[in-house]
């Protein structure tokens, strides 16, 4: 039933858009929803538009690609912390959401997040959100409830960490009682991260890394993204549980944007509308594992024991999550220098 319904919905989108068959190019993280083969196939079958994917490994790489290849992409996934920067650099265009039938069902605070909708225009359609927190091997240790687990002497050499300067600094800020968006005491952060270094066994950089390292017993506890943790559990059958630590967690919101110079705006809008469709989301979350949807109807359509209702649906958990704001280039470079210096000192 879901397949035919999906096709019917996508078909309606195509008719509404009155679009001709086009090839749309999507720029995203690999394995992050838009490139699910069944979703692409359903979309292609319904609309006649073909979908080609290109991937990036970091947000900066995504921006670099948009800067150096104007007109090469039609849909791009941009984290809300970068949407303003992309718009200010003229890399993306505002989206006229009229005619996108699922936009009305988006959670107002996410769709209207000032980092996605500003200057009276929509620059990114809220797609999914989630948190970066702690994920651990349930067979190897007890449930941690605090970020202090990463500094626990018993976990020395058992910690996995993402080799990302900003995220490292933000976690250290949380554990020292600071806001991730307003880090005042960088010395405390440096001190914390210096003590973290000997605890780290390995740096992970992708979901694939993370799953392999956990399965091979390289680490027992690691920083991780909530949606990916759900995927590790449901899709790969790994003994993983996700925790939102009591100090707080780094929240993020991903939006789908249309790059400036896209020649297939209507087709791109149809694709984005399909991406926020409950039909797509329920299948993505139940069969593959996904972050939390920004679409309220989609979240409500999940089974009751679903991770995205159980963990991310708990109001006490959500209250501790702080959504990340944009970070200036100067701060980024400062954090990277700090992080590199600590890594160099730990050699």
């Amino acid at each position: 039933m879901t397949r035919t319904a999906a096709i019917a919905i996508a078909g309606a989108i195509a008719l509404a858009a009155g679009a001709q068959a086009a090839e749309i190019r999507v720029l995203n993280w690999k394995g992050y929803g838009t490139d699910e083969p069944w979703a692409v196939a359903a979309f292609e079958k319904a609309t006649g538009h073909t979908v080609v994917h290109d991937y990036f490994n970091s947000e900066q790489e995504m921006l670099t690609r948009l800067r150096t290849n104007p007109g090469a992409y039609d849909v791009v996934l941009i984290n809300s912390a970068f949407t303003r920067q992309a718009a200010a650099e003229g890399l993306i265009q505002p989206i006229d959401t009229a005619g996108m039938k699922n936009v009305a069902d988006l959670a107002p605070n996410l769709a209207g997040n000032p980092e996605l909708a500003f200057d009276g225009k929509v620059w990114g359609v809220a797609w999914v959100w989630g948190v970066t927190g702690i994920a651990y091997n349930t067979e190897a240790m007890d449930r941690p409830d605090s970020l202090e687990v990463f500094w626990d002497p018993a976990m020395k050499g058992r910690v996995g960490w993402r080799d990302d300067a900003l995220e490292s600094v933000q976690f250290a800020a949380l554990v020292t009682g600071q806001s991730i968006n307003d880090i005042r005491d960088l010395d405390a952060v440096r001190d914390r991260l210096a003590r973290l270094m000997p605890q780290i066994r390995v740096f992970w950089s992708s979901e694939n890394d993370w799953n392999q390292f956990l399965a091979a017993g390289e680490f027992d506890v690691a920083t991780y993204w909530s949606g990916s943790a759900a995927r590790s559990k449901t899709h790969f059958g790994l003994p993983v549980e996700f925790v939102i630590p009591r100090e707080g967690a780094i929240g993020w919101l991903d939006g789908l944007s249309i790059p400036a110079g896209s020649a297939n705006v209507e087709a791109a809008k149809a694709f984005i509308d399909w991406m926020i469709d409950p039909e797509f989301y329920v299948k993505w979350d139940t069969e593959v594992g996904a972050p939390a949807s920004a679409n309220l109807k989609a979240a409500a359509a999940l089974p009751e024991d679903a991770f995205n209702r159980r963990v991310l649906g708990d109001p006490a958990n959500i209250a501790r999550v702080e959504i990340m704001k944009p970070v200036s280039d100067a701060d980024r470079e400062r954090f990277l220098a700090l992080w590199q210096e600590l890594k160099a000192a730990a050699q």
Binding site: I200, E333, Q340, Q347
Partner: peptide, 28 residues
């Protein structure tokens, strides 16, 4: 170094790569 080195994989080459890919600081 990045793939095989893990925490021990920080070298001059990886620091240069970070400047290009992580912070878009091509000049440095």
């Amino acid at each position: 170094p990045r793939i095989l080195g893990g925490r021990a994989g920080t070298f001059f080459g990886t620091v240069i790569e970070d400047q290009f890919t992580a912070v878009f600081n091509w000049p440095l």
